[in-house]
Design a binder for these strands. Structure first.
Lengths: 122, 122
DNA sequence: CGTTACCGTCTACACGTGTAGTCAATAGGT
DNA sequence: ACCTATTGACTACACGTGTAGACGGTAACG
Protein backbone atom coordinates (compact mmCIF):
# COMPACT_ATOMS: atom_id res chain seq x y z
CA UNK A 1 0.00 0.00 0.00
CA UNK A 2 1.41 3.29 -1.09
CA UNK A 3 2.03 6.06 1.47
CA UNK A 4 1.70 9.52 -0.05
CA UNK A 5 3.91 12.50 0.72
CA UNK A 6 1.53 14.21 3.12
CA UNK A 7 0.78 10.90 4.77
CA UNK A 8 4.44 10.23 5.32
CA UNK A 9 4.70 13.35 7.45
CA UNK A 10 2.03 11.93 9.70
CA UNK A 11 3.90 8.64 9.82
CA UNK A 12 7.09 10.42 10.80
CA UNK A 13 5.30 12.05 13.69
CA UNK A 14 3.90 8.69 14.73
CA UNK A 15 7.23 6.95 14.48
CA UNK A 16 8.74 9.65 16.65
CA UNK A 17 6.11 9.26 19.33
CA UNK A 18 3.43 6.63 19.75
CA UNK A 19 0.83 5.79 20.65
CA UNK A 20 -0.55 9.28 20.58
CA UNK A 21 -3.60 11.37 19.77
CA UNK A 22 -4.65 13.20 16.66
CA UNK A 23 -4.34 16.41 18.61
CA UNK A 24 -0.71 15.72 19.42
CA UNK A 25 0.11 14.90 15.83
CA UNK A 26 -1.65 18.04 14.76
CA UNK A 27 0.39 20.06 17.22
CA UNK A 28 3.65 18.61 15.98
CA UNK A 29 3.06 18.43 12.24
CA UNK A 30 0.64 21.16 11.31
CA UNK A 31 2.68 24.27 12.21
CA UNK A 32 5.33 23.51 9.64
CA UNK A 33 2.67 22.86 7.06
CA UNK A 34 -0.17 25.21 7.81
CA UNK A 35 -2.54 22.28 7.93
CA UNK A 36 -5.93 22.51 9.55
CA UNK A 37 -6.91 19.98 12.17
CA UNK A 38 -9.29 18.32 9.74
CA UNK A 39 -6.51 17.73 7.28
CA UNK A 40 -4.54 15.82 9.88
CA UNK A 41 -7.62 13.78 10.75
CA UNK A 42 -8.27 12.97 7.12
CA UNK A 43 -4.73 11.81 6.63
CA UNK A 44 -4.94 9.68 9.76
CA UNK A 45 -8.16 8.13 8.55
CA UNK A 46 -6.61 7.32 5.20
CA UNK A 47 -3.60 5.75 6.87
CA UNK A 48 -5.88 3.63 9.02
CA UNK A 49 -7.69 2.61 5.83
CA UNK A 50 -4.39 1.65 4.30
CA UNK A 51 -3.55 -0.38 7.40
CA UNK A 52 -0.42 1.65 7.99
CA UNK A 53 -1.78 2.90 11.29
CA UNK A 54 -3.71 1.21 14.03
CA UNK A 55 -6.13 2.73 16.51
CA UNK A 56 -7.13 1.94 20.01
CA UNK A 57 -9.93 3.67 21.79
CA UNK A 58 -9.07 5.67 24.83
CA UNK A 59 -12.13 7.28 26.31
CA UNK A 60 -13.71 9.44 23.70
CA UNK A 61 -10.72 9.58 21.45
CA UNK A 62 -8.35 7.33 19.63
CA UNK A 63 -4.76 6.56 20.24
CA UNK A 64 -2.87 6.07 17.01
CA UNK A 65 0.16 3.91 16.54
CA UNK A 66 2.13 2.95 13.45
CA UNK A 67 1.49 -0.49 12.05
CA UNK A 68 3.96 -0.07 9.26
CA UNK A 69 7.49 -0.02 10.66
CA UNK A 70 9.70 2.81 9.59
CA UNK A 71 12.38 0.31 8.69
CA UNK A 72 10.10 -1.46 6.24
CA UNK A 73 8.94 1.80 4.77
CA UNK A 74 12.47 3.10 4.30
CA UNK A 75 13.45 -0.24 2.84
CA UNK A 76 10.79 -0.31 0.15
CA UNK A 77 11.09 3.35 -0.73
CA UNK A 78 14.86 3.05 -0.97
CA UNK A 79 14.73 -0.02 -3.10
CA UNK A 80 12.31 1.58 -5.50
CA UNK A 81 14.31 4.75 -5.68
CA UNK A 82 17.64 3.05 -6.21
CA UNK A 83 16.16 0.79 -8.84
CA UNK A 84 14.62 3.69 -10.71
CA UNK A 85 17.55 6.03 -10.51
CA UNK A 86 20.68 3.96 -10.29
CA UNK A 87 19.87 0.60 -11.80
CA UNK A 88 19.45 -1.02 -8.42
CA UNK A 89 22.99 -0.45 -7.18
CA UNK A 90 24.09 1.65 -4.26
CA UNK A 91 27.58 2.64 -5.34
CA UNK A 92 26.47 4.78 -8.28
CA UNK A 93 24.37 6.83 -5.92
CA UNK A 94 27.28 7.44 -3.59
CA UNK A 95 29.44 8.15 -6.58
CA UNK A 96 26.93 10.68 -7.76
CA UNK A 97 27.06 12.53 -4.47
CA UNK A 98 30.78 12.18 -4.19
CA UNK A 99 31.30 13.68 -7.61
CA UNK A 100 29.33 16.73 -6.51
CA UNK A 101 31.17 17.06 -3.26
CA UNK A 102 27.98 16.54 -1.37
CA UNK A 103 29.60 14.12 1.03
CA UNK A 104 30.21 15.66 4.41
CA UNK A 105 33.31 14.72 6.40
CA UNK A 106 31.01 12.77 8.73
CA UNK A 107 29.61 10.91 5.77
CA UNK A 108 33.06 10.00 4.61
CA UNK A 109 34.16 8.91 8.07
CA UNK A 110 31.09 6.80 8.50
CA UNK A 111 31.45 5.21 5.11
CA UNK A 112 34.99 4.22 5.98
CA UNK A 113 33.82 2.78 9.23
CA UNK A 114 31.10 0.80 7.45
CA UNK A 115 33.48 -0.64 4.94
CA UNK A 116 35.95 -1.60 7.64
CA UNK A 117 33.12 -3.32 9.45
CA UNK A 118 32.21 -5.26 6.34
CA UNK A 119 35.83 -6.32 5.92
CA UNK A 120 35.90 -7.55 9.49
CA UNK A 121 32.82 -9.59 8.85
CA UNK A 122 34.37 -11.41 5.92
CA UNK B 1 8.65 21.30 -12.59
CA UNK B 2 7.80 17.85 -11.39
CA UNK B 3 8.29 14.81 -13.64
CA UNK B 4 5.82 12.03 -12.89
CA UNK B 5 6.60 8.33 -12.87
CA UNK B 6 5.19 7.54 -16.30
CA UNK B 7 6.82 10.65 -17.69
CA UNK B 8 10.19 9.62 -16.34
CA UNK B 9 10.08 6.46 -18.46
CA UNK B 10 9.71 8.63 -21.52
CA UNK B 11 12.61 10.75 -20.34
CA UNK B 12 14.77 7.66 -19.88
CA UNK B 13 14.06 6.64 -23.45
CA UNK B 14 14.95 10.13 -24.61
CA UNK B 15 18.13 10.28 -22.61
CA UNK B 16 19.15 6.98 -24.09
CA UNK B 17 18.59 8.15 -27.65
CA UNK B 18 17.87 11.61 -28.96
CA UNK B 19 16.67 13.38 -30.90
CA UNK B 20 14.07 10.88 -31.92
CA UNK B 21 10.47 10.42 -32.93
CA UNK B 22 7.38 9.59 -30.92
CA UNK B 23 7.16 6.37 -32.85
CA UNK B 24 10.63 5.32 -31.75
CA UNK B 25 9.90 6.09 -28.13
CA UNK B 26 6.68 4.18 -28.41
CA UNK B 27 8.57 1.20 -29.83
CA UNK B 28 11.07 1.22 -27.03
CA UNK B 29 8.92 2.06 -24.02
CA UNK B 30 5.43 0.76 -24.71
CA UNK B 31 6.09 -2.98 -24.88
CA UNK B 32 7.20 -3.16 -21.28
CA UNK B 33 4.22 -1.14 -20.23
CA UNK B 34 1.41 -2.09 -22.53
CA UNK B 35 0.92 1.55 -23.43
CA UNK B 36 -0.98 2.65 -26.49
CA UNK B 37 0.61 5.02 -28.91
CA UNK B 38 -1.67 7.82 -27.77
CA UNK B 39 -0.47 7.42 -24.22
CA UNK B 40 3.10 7.98 -25.29
CA UNK B 41 2.05 11.03 -27.28
CA UNK B 42 0.15 12.45 -24.33
CA UNK B 43 3.12 12.02 -22.06
CA UNK B 44 5.39 13.65 -24.61
CA UNK B 45 3.02 16.58 -24.93
CA UNK B 46 2.95 17.01 -21.17
CA UNK B 47 6.72 16.92 -21.00
CA UNK B 48 6.92 19.55 -23.70
CA UNK B 49 4.44 21.63 -21.69
CA UNK B 50 6.66 21.22 -18.64
CA UNK B 51 9.66 22.32 -20.70
CA UNK B 52 11.47 19.08 -19.96
CA UNK B 53 11.46 18.16 -23.63
CA UNK B 54 12.03 20.22 -26.73
CA UNK B 55 10.69 19.63 -30.22
CA UNK B 56 11.93 20.35 -33.66
CA UNK B 57 9.86 19.79 -36.77
CA UNK B 58 11.09 17.29 -39.24
CA UNK B 59 8.73 17.02 -42.16
CA UNK B 60 5.35 16.05 -40.87
CA UNK B 61 6.55 14.89 -37.51
CA UNK B 62 8.50 16.11 -34.56
CA UNK B 63 11.87 15.17 -33.30
CA UNK B 64 11.97 15.17 -29.53
CA UNK B 65 15.00 15.81 -27.42
CA UNK B 66 15.44 16.19 -23.66
CA UNK B 67 15.79 19.70 -22.34
CA UNK B 68 16.17 18.57 -18.77
CA UNK B 69 19.51 16.83 -18.30
CA UNK B 70 19.47 13.46 -16.67
CA UNK B 71 22.17 14.64 -14.31
CA UNK B 72 20.02 17.48 -13.05
CA UNK B 73 17.02 15.24 -12.69
CA UNK B 74 18.92 12.60 -10.76
CA UNK B 75 20.43 15.32 -8.63
CA UNK B 76 17.14 16.86 -7.55
CA UNK B 77 15.36 13.55 -7.07
CA UNK B 78 18.26 12.21 -5.04
CA UNK B 79 18.46 15.27 -2.88
CA UNK B 80 14.79 15.16 -2.13
CA UNK B 81 14.85 11.48 -1.40
CA UNK B 82 17.88 11.63 0.87
CA UNK B 83 16.44 14.59 2.71
CA UNK B 84 13.12 12.88 3.23
CA UNK B 85 14.44 9.49 4.19
CA UNK B 86 17.83 9.96 5.75
CA UNK B 87 17.95 13.47 7.09
CA UNK B 88 19.95 14.71 4.14
CA UNK B 89 22.99 12.52 4.70
CA UNK B 90 24.33 9.81 2.45
CA UNK B 91 26.03 7.56 4.98
CA UNK B 92 22.82 6.49 6.73
CA UNK B 93 21.49 5.30 3.41
CA UNK B 94 24.54 3.18 2.74
CA UNK B 95 24.40 1.97 6.29
CA UNK B 96 20.80 0.97 5.78
CA UNK B 97 21.68 -1.13 2.77
CA UNK B 98 24.79 -2.50 4.37
CA UNK B 99 22.84 -3.63 7.41
CA UNK B 100 20.55 -5.61 5.11
CA UNK B 101 23.35 -7.12 3.13
CA UNK B 102 22.09 -5.48 0.03
CA UNK B 103 25.51 -4.32 -1.00
CA UNK B 104 26.92 -6.35 -3.85
CA UNK B 105 30.63 -7.12 -3.97
CA UNK B 106 30.87 -4.66 -6.85
CA UNK B 107 29.18 -2.02 -4.71
CA UNK B 108 31.68 -2.61 -1.94
CA UNK B 109 34.64 -2.55 -4.29
CA UNK B 110 33.45 0.64 -5.88
CA UNK B 111 32.79 2.30 -2.57
CA UNK B 112 36.34 1.52 -1.50
CA UNK B 113 37.65 2.92 -4.72
CA UNK B 114 35.62 6.08 -4.23
CA UNK B 115 36.87 6.61 -0.73
CA UNK B 116 40.45 6.04 -1.79
CA UNK B 117 39.93 8.61 -4.51
CA UNK B 118 38.64 11.10 -1.99
CA UNK B 119 41.66 10.47 0.22
CA UNK B 120 43.95 11.11 -2.71
CA UNK B 121 42.22 14.37 -3.33
CA UNK B 122 42.87 15.61 0.19
C1' DC C 1 -30.31 13.27 33.21
C1' DG C 2 -29.51 17.01 30.02
C1' DT C 3 -26.39 19.90 27.71
C1' DT C 4 -22.05 20.85 25.78
C1' DA C 5 -17.67 20.29 23.90
C1' DC C 6 -14.86 17.38 21.61
C1' DC C 7 -13.47 14.28 18.09
C1' DG C 8 -13.91 11.19 14.33
C1' DT C 9 -16.62 10.46 9.91
C1' DC C 10 -18.70 11.99 5.72
C1' DT C 11 -18.61 14.79 1.99
C1' DA C 12 -16.30 17.83 -1.15
C1' DC C 13 -13.47 19.75 -4.58
C1' DA C 14 -9.57 21.00 -7.47
C1' DC C 15 -5.55 19.26 -9.40
C1' DG C 16 -2.09 15.87 -11.13
C1' DT C 17 -1.62 11.49 -13.25
C1' DG C 18 -2.28 7.24 -15.95
C1' DT C 19 -4.46 5.92 -19.76
C1' DA C 20 -6.62 6.36 -24.25
C1' DG C 21 -10.13 7.71 -28.13
C1' DT C 22 -11.33 11.01 -31.71
C1' DC C 23 -10.30 14.69 -34.73
C1' DA C 24 -8.02 17.77 -37.74
C1' DA C 25 -4.06 19.22 -40.33
C1' DT C 26 -0.78 18.29 -43.54
C1' DA C 27 3.00 15.96 -45.93
C1' DG C 28 3.57 12.71 -49.51
C1' DG C 29 2.56 9.98 -53.10
C1' DT C 30 0.05 9.47 -57.55
C1' DA D 1 -4.00 19.13 -57.66
C1' DC D 2 -6.20 15.41 -54.86
C1' DC D 3 -6.60 11.78 -51.85
C1' DT D 4 -4.83 9.23 -48.08
C1' DA D 5 -2.06 7.94 -44.37
C1' DT D 6 0.26 9.69 -40.62
C1' DT D 7 0.88 12.37 -36.59
C1' DG D 8 0.16 15.70 -33.17
C1' DA D 9 -3.79 18.21 -30.63
C1' DC D 10 -7.91 18.06 -28.17
C1' DT D 11 -10.91 15.86 -25.13
C1' DA D 12 -12.00 12.56 -21.65
C1' DC D 13 -12.33 10.06 -17.52
C1' DA D 14 -11.32 7.56 -13.25
C1' DC D 15 -8.43 7.57 -9.41
C1' DG D 16 -5.16 9.31 -5.83
C1' DT D 17 -3.91 13.26 -3.27
C1' DG D 18 -3.87 17.66 -0.73
C1' DT D 19 -6.81 20.23 1.63
C1' DA D 20 -10.80 21.30 4.46
C1' DG D 21 -15.91 22.21 5.94
C1' DA D 22 -20.06 20.24 8.02
C1' DC D 23 -22.14 16.97 10.83
C1' DG D 24 -23.26 13.71 14.23
C1' DG D 25 -22.31 10.73 18.17
C1' DT D 26 -20.84 10.31 22.66
C1' DA D 27 -18.14 11.15 26.83
C1' DA D 28 -17.95 14.22 30.46
C1' DC D 29 -19.47 17.61 33.37
C1' DG D 30 -22.84 19.96 35.94
Amino acid sequence: MRISGAESLIMEALWANHPTTAEDIFARVAPGRGWSETTVKTLLARLVGKKAVDTEREGRRYLYRPLLAREAYVESESREFIDRMFGGRVAPLVSHFSAREKLSPEDIAELKRLLAEIDDGQ
